[in-house]
Design a protein around this nucleic acid. Structure first.
Lengths: 110, 110
DNA sequence: TTGCCATTTCGCAATATTGCGAATAGACTG
DNA sequence: CAGTCTATTCGCAATATTGCGAAATGGCAA
């Protein structure tokens, strides 16, 4: 997924273009990555937490959602970056939970 | 993604197996689908809402996250079922938001 | 009407995620 | 020690999602 395109900027009056540059220009991209890493870690922990709270082994949870233990293990890996809404829903459903998704505004620096 | 396996049940003492049957047996599966459909609809609407609130066209938002207008259009389609965490994050990031994911317990029947 | 912009739909290639078995390691027990 | 269960890692096939252009549609204004 290419995200690096810092070619030499040329002048523009396009407000959207300006916003795009401001957003992807400096550190924000890196911060965004860190933020995502944190989130992935939290998701992994949360899955493990819910599973153990339900007193299930990886194999048992896997059977509940129709997959295998290795898949569950992968999901509980803090470094895993491939979390999908579909999978989170399957996990949640098996554990009598639902996935709630919210867009929350970011406080723009200080 | 196969989810229908209502083969004739055979007796079991496995608690996990019992739970699995109870979860996927009757209507819950269908209710779960409805619940997901509602959620997808909400996500689609939310994306459109955020985009228009930011006074952006689909083309402009597409440029912000490095894709095309047709993709944005697809995301804003209430019937679209392919929402991914990755894409939601890209949208959110471009609009100064972050995606918050929570597992919330479901009140079991009545 | 024409022209322009935004949106929508379609098809297919490219990439990402899942499915799944096998093999390994760790912990615990008899 | 062997035996068992859990967790983890690896590789590759299968499926799902995205990328992207082309074409069609709708709205709006000159």
């Amino acid at each position: 997924m290419p995200h690096k395109k810092t070619k030499t900027l040329k002048p523009t009056a396009d407000a959207v273009e300006i916003l795009r540059r401001r957003t992807y220009a400096g550190k924000p991209a890196r911060m965004k990555n860190l933020e995502e890493a944190r989130t992935n870690e939290e998701i992994a922990r949360k899955i493990q937490e819910l599973r153990t709270a339900a007193a299930l082994t990886q194999t048992q949870l896997a059977r509940l959602i129709g997959t295998t233990a290795s898949v569950i293990c992968r999901l509980e890996d803090a470094d895993y970056e491939g979390h999908s809404l579909a999978m989170l829903r399957r996990i949640a459903g098996a554990l009598n939970q639902r996935v709630e998704i919210r867009f929350v505004p970011i406080r723009r620096s200080a």
